[in-house]
């Protein structure tokens, strides 16, 4: 089995109140121009990449994998609110920006990827699934490198969309995005992706976790949908917490993984995700060197 390495990792989080202008001002001037018609959702997605384009490994066979749990719901809500108020004439970009493929396009254009691109969702496992597909494509040589990202924004007080049960009235998650760049090249890699493991049930995932050996640098992350007390955590495994991971939905997991790779120089991460019907996926990652991007 070919080993997959993480060459780049970055994340971005912002408050719900951070507006379009503020997000645009964070971008380099050249990027700002190309994203002038983009939505807030796209601009959040672009933040971790826009100032780091030279660090990304990509060529004409590179692939882009764009995950989101909820997508740009605010854009959809705005269009339907217009209908409700009797305005049926949409502006073209108001319509185009309702889909995650629009944000995926913005990123493909930003990083100049003409190979495979894919915008997908798999609920809480969206980011993990994007990683899984990217790894499969790298191993089958469908792509030469993969840029895998996740973005989500929370929608307060929606009259159309329901927040997941883990988002409570007094919980105000940040919006955010996270990206990792995968290759088969170990040179200067930040981390190694040791494996992606699937389990039909939580119990089988726990059994597998008990069979692993741990040292003092072994960490785990959990999705919002799984409380830490509901998992039998083996001795030696510590929850990896990061202040930026207040982000909502699947992107919180992406931020934790990206932060671990970016900031931890020596350690192993067991990135645990829970899918529909209680299935589990664990992604194991090993940090390779001390660095800060």
């Amino acid at each position: 089995m070919m080993t997959i390495y993480i060459q780049f990792s970055n994340f971005f989080v912002c408050e719900k109140s951070t507006d379009l202008t503020a997000l645009k001002n964070e971008l380099p001037a050249t990027v700002r121009k190309s994203l002038r018609k983009s939505s807030r959702f796209s601009l959040i997605a672009a933040q971790p990449l826009a100032n780091n384009l030279s660090q990304l490994y990509r060529d004409e066979m590179s692939g882009l994998y764009f995950a989101s749990e909820r997508g740009p719901l605010a854009n959809t809500e705005a269009c339907l609110q217009d209908f409700k108020q009797g305005t049926w004439q949409l502006m073209p970009f108001s319509f185009l920006n309702v889909g995650i493929n629009s944000a995926c396009f913005d990123i493909a254009q930003l990083v100049n990827i003409n190979g495979k691109s894919l915008a997908l969702s798999d609920a809480d496992q969206s980011f993990a699934t994007a990683l899984k597909i990217a790894c499969n494509d790298l191993r089958s040589k469908t792509v030469s490198s993969a840029l895998v990202g996740t973005v989500d924004e929370h929608l307060d007080q929606s009259v159309i969309f329901t927040a997941p049960s883990h988002i409570h009235e007094h919980s105000h998650p940040n919006d955010g995005a996270a990206w990792v760049n995968l290759t088969l090249n170990p040179d200067a890699a930040l981390a190694k992706l040791d494996g992606i493991y699937h389990f039909p049930t939580l119990q089988q995932a726990e059994t597998w976790l008990r069979q692993q050996t741990y040292d003092e640098n072994c960490f785990f992350t959990l999705p919002h949908s799984l409380k830490v007390e509901s998992l039998a955590v083996p001795d030696g495994l510590t929850e990896y917490r990061h202040p930026a991971a207040k982000t909502c939905f699947t992107t919180a997991q992406g931020v934790k993984l990206a932060a671990f790779v970016k900031e931890i120089s020596n350690g192993h991460l067991f990135h645990i995700t829970k899918g529909a019907q209680g299935t589990m996926t664990i992604i194991k990652i090993s940090a390779l060197l001390s660095t800060s991007q």
Binding site: G71, S121, S126, F161
Partner: peptide
């Protein structure tokens, strides 16, 4: 559990 774009496959599953 909430609105997300992955609702349909999870629902069918």
């Amino acid at each position: 559990d909430g609105s997300n774009i992955g609702n349909i496959p999870a629902y069918l599953a």
